[in-house]
Design a protein around this nucleic acid. Structure first.
Lengths: 334, 334
DNA sequence: CTGAAAGCGCTTACAG
DNA sequence: CTGAAAGCGCTTACAG
């Protein structure tokens, strides 16, 4: 590997001068600069980033750890964070935690280890009981589902209110027997539980009594699982006229199952999702959804992280993004 | 920041012993090990990865540079590469190049700079003329669309043959006037051009004369653009009974436009895509598509990269993955 | 405008 | 089983 010393030797200057040229610092004579640049080109030299990072203590790179890179929501979130990172001259690098608590902790640990200047962690595995493990002396912003009253800045999705709005929307459109499709409600702070709480509150507000048979619990968050659950419910003779899906991704399976069963959407059953993923508006019927203001979430998360990287020491910030209801064909009245 | 020296001092040993404990090397007395571990815990010490990387010259991390992280295809590809990386104890980190030649070159340069042990670069901006710039003394595997007879290992998508199979499938199902929707054909080696070549060959094989009005060129690869193009074609009175879409993502817009126009799929028009993205089979109608064997691409790319990281010096490998035609409702005959 | 030297935090032969 | 010392490749006060 060719190093800065090799260049220095070949160009007849000191390593420091090469470094100055590399970092386009002033106070280098033009002729010297030209000679060094020429030598760099001749020897095909590239800076060793590991060494520079060690020395500078900065990488100008932040990490984004998401549960799964192949979910459209996280892809779109990643793109939004990359875009915001650019405003601050920050590279963004994406890692996958696979929804596991352990991997989320590893992401946290690795980042402390100076691969990144800071980390945005979309936490789904970590819970309130892990709060102590989050006391890191390193810039981290927690993103997403759960609400931590933890030691770190947190940008939260409007889970309960968004779900409430979605279900209220179904009710306004005439639905009275509304299915909720989500993951298991093991814990009070996961997406499913928070969104389910919004569902229940909307029913209560409308004076509709909850029917536990209308709650479909999935083992996995997937269209397959959602489709199977709907098939099973219909086969069992369950009557319903609306479906609230915990995510658009799950709604994909619900819509497909209803089509398979010859149940017309929105005429017989209305369907709404959550996340407002890009493809939702191109589905047939286009899918109504709750838009959690992904761009705002991304902007806020990056801004908070940049502040911490710059050394801000204030109390942890808790920001809940606003939401918008996107009414489309799947909940239309005609 | 607490360093290995601090631990050494506090535990009354040398930095080297701390390092040995950290790297679970043998030949450390149990009592010493225990004391060091305790001190590490007490002082909440973590290894500084930048320093370790510099010293070891290895990061156990590979980079994956993709054009856009928010396209389902690249999300799924990323997940597949992460999975394969794990088999080799390699972390995978995803970066976005935004389809720009410049960013692809930056990814190449940065990776050389020892942030990663190797790079998988999904190149769409680089062309044959950049071949010289690819002569890097660093493990890189080029992925994807274009065919390089370059100096690097290359795992290629079966663009032309896959497109040929798709269009042949439409013809077998009775289509004779087949639209092709893709990006501009500025260059012979981009996705659009390669897939268009397959389209033309399938028409020729079937003795169908090509009609240039049936080629719809998009400025951007997006459902919006595709939808607009279809609307415009129909408004202009274009007659057609099949649509070959350059990607499933583009097909989303085509399907939506046809639905808006009241044109029934597959009865009046049959539609097929390329990529076989996960959501395609849940659309209504479910979308026929060409599956480019993403998992194989990922496995092959990681294997080749690992070989190079281990020092393999053989000639560049060119691997074209197989494809499979997924026939679904959008091309059904009934 | 340029240089000699120290040091970022770690690991690794080399000794003992 | 443990240590002293060199060095990974860079940058940065400090001098001149």
């Amino acid at each position: 590997m060719v190093t800065i010393r090799d260049i220095a030797k070949a160009a007849g200057v000191s390593p420091m001068t090469v470094s100055n040229v590399l970092n386009s610092r002033p106070h280098v004579k033009d002729s010297t600069r030209a000679r060094v640049l020429q030598t760099i080109d001749d020897l095909d030299y590239r800076v060793n980033i590991a060494a520079r990072n060690l020395r500078r203590g900065k990488t100008h790179t932040i990490g984004l750890a998401v549960p799964e890179v192949d979910r459209p929501y996280f892809g779109e979130l990643g793109a939004a964070i990359i875009e915001n990172g650019r405003r601050h001259d920050l590279n963004v690098v994406i890692e996958q935690t696979e929804r596991s608590r352990e991997n989320e902790l590893t992401a946290l640990a690795l980042s402390r280890l100076r691969m990144y200047d800071g980390l945005i962690l979309s936490a789904v595995g970590l819970g309130e009981s892990d709060v102590d493990l989050l006391r890191v002396d390193f810039p981290v912003v927690i993103l997403g589902e759960r609400i931590f009253q933890g030691p770190l800045d947190h940008v939260a999705t409007p889970n309960e209110d968004g779900a409430h709005a979605a279900v209220q929307h179904l009710i306004e459109r005439g639905c009275t027997r509304i299915i909720a499709v989500h993951g298991s409600l093991s814990d009070d702070t996961d997406v499913s539980s928070l969104r389910h709480a919004g569902y229940r509150r909307a029913l209560a507000d409308a004076g509709i009594e909850e029917d536990s048979r209308l709650t479909l619990t999935l083992d996995v968050f997937s269209p397959e699982a959602a489709s199977a659950a709907v098939h099973q419910a219909v086969d069992a003779g369950l009557q319903f006229d609306g479906v609230f899906c915990v995510t658009d991704y799950v709604a994909l399976g619900v819509l497909r199952a209803l089509a398979d069963l010859g149940i017309s959407v929105p005429d017989e059953v209305k369907v709404i999702g959550f996340d407002d993923v890009e493809s939702s508006r191109f589905l047939t019927p286009s899918l109504s959804s709750v838009n959690p203001s992904k761009d705002l979430i991304a902007a806020k998360a990056v801004d908070l992280l940049v502040d911490r990287i710059k050394g801000a020491t204030g109390d942890p910030v808790e920001f809940v993004s606003p939401y918008a209801l996107m009414a489309r064909e799947s909940t239309a009245v005609r």
